[in-house]
Design a protein around this nucleic acid. Structure first.
Length: 480
RNA sequence: UCCUACUUAGCUCAGUUGGUUAGAGCAUCUGACUGUUAAUCAGAGGGUCGCUGGUUCAAGUCCAGCAGUGGGAGCCA
């Protein structure tokens, strides 16, 4: 057996001392020709491996460089120095993989997030990204646990989709046809997709919602959790071309049930990370605090990361309608003093980022659920309210992130749905399979989509979405 | 996609009104020290100033185009 090592996390958190063991991991620093800080990714903390001055010959000692992979065997003892409880007093050191210090880009010093993004294949080996991706893992695990405990079915919706009317943005085309212009054409000059792999035009999915609804009207409660793709030319710190989305869909839920589920869900998974990733979140909180110190006092956030997460878990989200939000904004001093770039005057226009931020960060200072938007600015599948003007939509806005959840009670009435599709120029014949759910045993149901990376942003306190997914895809970038 | 700022050593940044051989800190290398905590001390090496073109006796510095990155906006999750 080769892998007879003990994980560093187990050694640092355990109570045992004075026993022999082996660790394997990557060198972070080598101090004083005696102390090697080794990390294996099981925790943000390193174990200190202590080597006697005569243990290694000079040539071997020089190979202990930042980034090298080593195997160290020896006694776990109570540390003789300050700064750590235990340390490994080595009886043997083996270099498993050399790392040329002149060429290895990560050095024991501060690096900018922009630089680390260029070497995303190596950034896992930093404290910050180690913490981020352990938290990301925990959040993903908690999502499955939450829904499983509630009896939801985890539904795998297709990644390649044949319907191009999902209505959530530009799509990436999937094809095996030649791209040099020699693909078979129809008489009118358009591409003949009957010759394509699937015999029709196909794309990467932008949402699993429509398929999710099909399954919800059989299992009652389902959720999806998978990658989604948007070919929008969005160059922001909040958008990716490939991102992961969680989409629950629940039969017999109305809009209020939907809000309750979303709020409970967000609190559950944040709390899971708070409990299971204490050290990682503490590290990220400290990192954020140091970053905040660089900013002017006025721009600093009032709460630290830890406080912010505790606050969200322990307080109710503010719920109000679009109409109420418009009134608050219209009567705000901010609006009267004309501090908004876009002044609020008309009911019916969509809220700008600055308005959402004002509501969340200045007025309520907590997550906000906005409901009942004008039908004109929302999708065709959202249920028309009794007033005939608004739809049963809900968006959850988070401080610092903006929209984190978008959801609605779905239009379950066949005639209304078809009418809305025609209004919004969605051809009903292309979504005939979807309309079948309304033809056969339709029922009240609701669901929402939560952008996983935006949640990871919120929990880690990071500000750029490209730093919370291992290998980010965005316009002009698909490295690694 | 739009607005705006930036791009100089491996990294983070200085570089004045255009003017001799482009600097610092960290990292790296060499040596010293040896219970260190991103160790410390001494010394050394390291540059196509984003790319392309232009103005000028002379361009890191001025102008234009392109690219990339940051911040803001739009689209949204």
């Amino acid at each position: 057996m080769y892998n007879n090592r003990t994980k560093i996390n187990a050694l640092l958190t355990g109570d045992n001392i004075d026993f022999e063991t082996t660790v394997m991991g990557w060198v972070r620093t080598f101090r004083n020709n005696q102390f090697i800080a080794v990390n294996d990714g099981s925790t943000n903390n390193n174990i200190q491996v202590v080597i006697a001055l005569d243990l290694l010959d000079d040539a071997t000692q020089k190979r202990i460089t930042t980034g090298a992979c080593i195997k160290a065997t020896g006694q776990i003892i109570a540390s003789l120095g300050k700064g750590q409880k235990v340390e490994l007093k080595a009886t043997s050191i083996e270099i498993l993989g050399d790392s040329d210090a002149e060429k290895f880009p990560l050095q024991p010093k501060k690096h900018s997030l922009e630089f680390l993004r260029e070497i995303a294949h190596l950034r896992f080996r930093t404290n910050t990204f180690g913490a981020i991706f352990r938290v990301r893992h925990s959040l993903a695990f908690a999502i499955h646990q939450f829904f499983n405990d509630k009896g939801f079915v985890y539904l795998h919706t297709p990644i390649i989709t044949g319907s191009d009317a999902e209505g959530a943005g530009e799509m990436f085309r999937v094809t095996t046809l030649p791209i040099d212009g020699t693909a078979a054409k129809n008489d009118d000059g358009s591409i003949n997709f009957k010759e394509d792999f699937f015999g029709k035009s196909t794309n990467l999915t932008v949402s699993g919602q429509l398929e999710g609804e099909l399954a919800a009207l059989a299992f009652s409660d389902i959720y999806t959790f998978g990658p989604t793709f948007r070919a929008e030319n969005s160059n922001t710190a909040r958008h990716l071309a490939e991102f992961w989305m969680i989409e629950p869909e629940v039969a017999f839920n109305d809009l209020e049930d939907n809000m309750n589920l979303a709020e409970e869900f967000i609190k559950y998974i944040i709390n899971y990370a708070l409990v299971h990733n204490k050290e990682d979140i503490a590290f990220l909180a400290q990192r954020l605090e140091e970053e905040e110190k660089q900013k002017p006092v006025a721009d600093r956030s009032e709460m630290g990361l830890q406080q912010k997460l505790d606050f969200v878990v322990n307080n109710n989200f503010e719920r109000l309608t679009y109409t109420e939000a418009i009134n608050i904004l219209k009567n705000s001093n901010h609006n009267k003093k004309k501090k908004f770039q876009y002044l609020i005057d008309e009911w019916g226009t969509d809220l700008q980022s600055e308005h959402e931020r004002y509501l969340v960060e200045k007025h309520f200072k907590k997550p906000v659920i906005l409901t009942d938007y004008p039908k004109e600015i929302k999708s065709f599948y959202m249920r028309l309210n009794e007033d005939g003007k608004t739809v049963a939509a809900m968006d959850i806005l988070a401080p610092g992130i903006g929209e984190i959840v978008g959801g609605s009670q779905r239009e379950e009435r066949y005639e209304n749905l078809v009418a809305r599709m025609k209004e919004m120029n969605v051809p009903p014949e292309e979504l005939d399979f979807y309309l079948d759910t309304r033809r056969f045993g339709s029922c009240v149901h609701a669901g929402f989509g939560l952008g996983f990376e935006r949640l990871v942003l919120f929990v880690t306190g990071m500000t750029n979405i490209r730093d919370v997914i291992p290998f980010p895809r965005y316009p002009k970038s698909a490295a690694f």
